[in-house]
Measured scan of single mutants.
Amino acid sequence: VTLFVASYDYEARTEDDLSFHKGEKFQILNSSEGDWWEARSLTTGETGYIPSNYVAPV
């Protein structure tokens, strides 16, 4: 399981994006799509795309 933590807050801009807060942890589901990764929030359980430059490895 690949875990990352949010370095910043992010507000979703499309329905496919995932909003999150600094400190929130994610399981990365797919990182092969470039700068936007499909992730599941371990806080909310929601799945969506997050900007990879807003998160760091745990």
Rank of each mutant, 00 (worst) to 15 (best):
S41T: 03
Y49D: 02
P57E: 09
H21R: 14
A56K: 14
E15H: 11
F26T: 00
F26H: 00
K25I: 15
Q27T: 09
G34S: 12
G45Q: 06
T14F: 15
D16R: 15
L29C: 08
F20W: 01
H21F: 12
D17A: 15
W37L: 08
S7A: 13
L3D: 05
F20H: 01
W36D: 03
A6I: 02
E11A: 11
H21P: 05
E33Q: 14
T43S: 12
E15Y: 09
G45T: 02
D16C: 15
G48Y: 04
N53F: 10
L42Y: 06
Y54S: 12
Y49K: 13
H21L: 12
D35M: 10
V1G: 12
V1L: 13
D17V: 15
I50N: 01
F4I: 03
I50F: 01
S19L: 01
E33L: 14
V5S: 05
R40C: 10
I28Y: 01
R40H: 08
T2Q: 13
A12H: 05
D9H: 06
Y54N: 04
T2V: 13
I50D: 01
Y49I: 08
Y49H: 07
P57Y: 06
T44R: 03
W37Q: 02
Q27V: 15
Y54C: 13
N30S: 10
T43V: 09
T47L: 07
F20T: 02
K22G: 04
E46Q: 14
E46M: 14
L42F: 07
K22W: 04
A56G: 08
E46P: 00
Y8C: 15
E24K: 01
T2M: 13
V1F: 13
E11I: 13
P51H: 08
P51T: 02
E24F: 04
S52R: 10
G45K: 04
A6G: 03
T14E: 08
E46L: 15
T44G: 02
W37S: 01
T47R: 09
D35S: 09
A56P: 04
V5D: 02
Y54V: 06
Y54H: 09
L42W: 07
W37N: 01
S52N: 06
A39P: 00
E15F: 10
V55W: 03
V55F: 08
G34M: 10
R13S: 10
Y54I: 07
E33R: 14
E38T: 10
G34N: 12
E33S: 13
S7W: 14
A39D: 03
F4Q: 03
Y8Q: 12
N53V: 09
Y10P: 01
V5Y: 08
A12W: 03
F20R: 00
F20S: 01
L42D: 05
S7Y: 14
E33W: 10
F4S: 02
P57K: 07
H21S: 12
A6Y: 02
I28R: 02
L18V: 05
D9Y: 05
V1Q: 12
G23P: 01
V58M: 12
Y8H: 11
I50H: 00
L42H: 05
L18K: 01
V1R: 09
S19H: 06
S19C: 05
V5M: 10
F4A: 08
E24L: 01
R40P: 03
E38P: 04
P57L: 09
L3I: 15
P57I: 08
A12K: 08
F26E: 00
L29P: 04
L3P: 04
G23A: 02
Y49M: 14
L29V: 07
W36H: 06
I28C: 05
L42C: 14
T2I: 13
T43C: 12
I28W: 01
S19A: 06
R40V: 13
N30F: 07
V5F: 06
K25S: 07
T44M: 01
S32R: 09
K22Y: 06
D9T: 07
T44D: 03
S7G: 09
F4E: 01
D35N: 09
T43G: 06
L18T: 02
E38F: 15
I50L: 05
E15P: 13
P51D: 05
K25Y: 15
L3M: 10
L42R: 00
E38Y: 15
E11M: 11
Q27A: 09
E24C: 05
G34C: 13
F20E: 01
E11F: 10
S32G: 10
T14S: 14
P51L: 07
S19I: 02
G23C: 06
K25W: 13
W36G: 02
F26Y: 01
V58S: 08
L42T: 07
I28D: 00
I50K: 00
E24H: 06
V55Y: 03
A6P: 01
V1P: 12
E24P: 00
S32N: 11
I28E: 02
L3K: 04
A6C: 06
K22C: 07
R13K: 12
A39R: 00
D17Q: 15
W36Y: 11
D17C: 15
G34H: 12
G45R: 03
E46F: 11
E33V: 10
D17F: 15
G48L: 03
Y54D: 03
E33K: 14
W36S: 06
E38D: 04
Y49F: 12
S32L: 11
W37R: 00
A56E: 14
I50S: 00
D35W: 09
S52L: 05
G34L: 11
I50T: 00
A56M: 14
L42I: 09
D35V: 08
I28F: 03
S7M: 15
R13Q: 14
Y8P: 00
S52I: 07
T47I: 14
V1C: 15
E46W: 08
Y54A: 14
V5T: 07
Y8V: 09
T43F: 08
D35K: 07
Y49P: 01
V58I: 13
V5E: 10
I28G: 00
I50G: 01
G23I: 01
S31V: 11
L3E: 08
E11H: 11
S7T: 15
K25C: 12
H21K: 15
D16H: 15
S32H: 10
S41D: 04
G34A: 13
D17L: 10
R13H: 10
S41F: 03
I50A: 01
Q27K: 07
A56Y: 14
A39K: 00
